[in-house]
Write a protein that binds this DNA or RNA. Structure first.
Lengths: 208, 208
DNA sequence: ACCTGAACACCGTTCAAGT
DNA sequence: ACCTGAACACCGTTCAAGT
């Protein structure tokens, strides 16, 4: 009971080597928690440093900027989303149920990561966009494009530019996810509407 | 040349009565300019006060909070958008061209007010949402719902819950607008895609 | 009624210096 | 290589006091 290290300083359970095992990762983890609990507005580098138990200047070693930290956060968001979508995809399914489960996975991510989603699609990362981030976005789009492409090959949906079809379907899914993430639509209502939305996408609004 | 008032302090061309005609309006106008030119991140109440030529504490008289200023900005955005959509709507048109011009108007607003749009749909205004704001949003949704309802009455589109149809169409349009506003899709590409997107909404993805 | 000036507690960022 | 402490210039918000 005598020579214990100081009580764990928050997220860290290991006795840290006084050069803090992996500060970068710890900062990102803590940032995401704060983002989820208190929103971007109340995300400060100094408080983050406090939460993680380092000096306020320490984050500067790992992120040149506050924006760089936010970009990194968005990046991990896209990666996790891409993984969730790929994990949820069952290529053996026929088109309609396959797309439905894709849509539910996307909507689920939006519901459970609303603030993060806003950050991911925020119009900040303009000049360079960090490359890794666009890569992760492309991975997401690619997922949907694959679902669409497969359906075309099976003649389950019309032929035509896959990119345009992906845009139409993607826009509808993203619009629903956005409405949900920002509180216009309640999560349950959105999930309930998915099936009908997809039905309408498949069959069109024209009578017959 | 001797007794001129000091050169105009930015937006104000009148010699101001030293209690500043309408500070609230001036702040909102200046804020929107800054938003458009430099983004939300670099929007500070103090700089705003400087731009408009008042003390840094003056804005506090008109907006209890920085967030209150942003809410007001979003509110005017929704109102201007609702007006633009109503102005662009021609009820005499058949459904497809009518919806196309509605979509173009929405997309046009998103392109010309990208930062503002992000603010409008930002997940900040949660608790109360200011009432006027949801009213303005409802006005927008109502616009689309009217287009849809009219088409149903003419048997141009299928029967069924107008709210669900509005959601499907609205989600697709909003998704496209969002992709464009945050730079994933170029404005020209988005405008080019509108017609085909609407065609696909009308006719569906299923063959035949 | 509306605005100012000073004050307070907080930021982000930089940079010499420490380990 | 990584972190600290002090320093700088900036915030948002409040509140007595001025007009």
């Amino acid at each position: 009971m005598t020579s214990m290290p100081k009580p764990e300083t928050r997220e860290i359970r290991e006795t840290r080597p006084y050069h803090h095992g992996d500060l970068r990762t710890a900062l990102l983890a803590s940032a995401e928690r704060t983002l989820r609990e208190k929103g971007v507005t109340s995300l400060s580098l100094r408080e983050l440093a406090r939460d993680v138990g380092v000096s306020h200047a320490a984050p500067g070693r790992h992120f040149k900027d506050k924006q760089a930290l936010l970009n990194a956060l968005a990046e991990t968001g896209f990666e996790r989303m891409a993984e969730a979508l790929e994990a949820a995809d069952d290529p053996a399914l026929p088109f309609q149920p396959r797309l439905t489960s894709f849509a539910r996975a996307y909507l689920g991510f939006a519901i459970n990561n609303a603030e993060l989603l806003e950050l991911m699609y925020a119009r900040k990362h303009e000049p360079d966009a960090s490359e890794q981030m666009t890569a992760a976005l492309d991975r997401t789009v690619g997922s949907l494009e694959r679902v669409i492409g497969a359906a075309q090959q099976q003649n389950e949906i019309i032929a035509g530019d896959p990119a345009q079809l992906t845009l139409t379907v993607g826009a509808a899914l993203h619009g629903l996810a956005a409405f949900t993430a920002n509180g216009i639509y309640a999560p349950d209502a959105a999930l309930d509407a998915v099936e009908e939305l997809i039905h309408q996408l498949l069959h069109g609004l024209k009578p017959r």
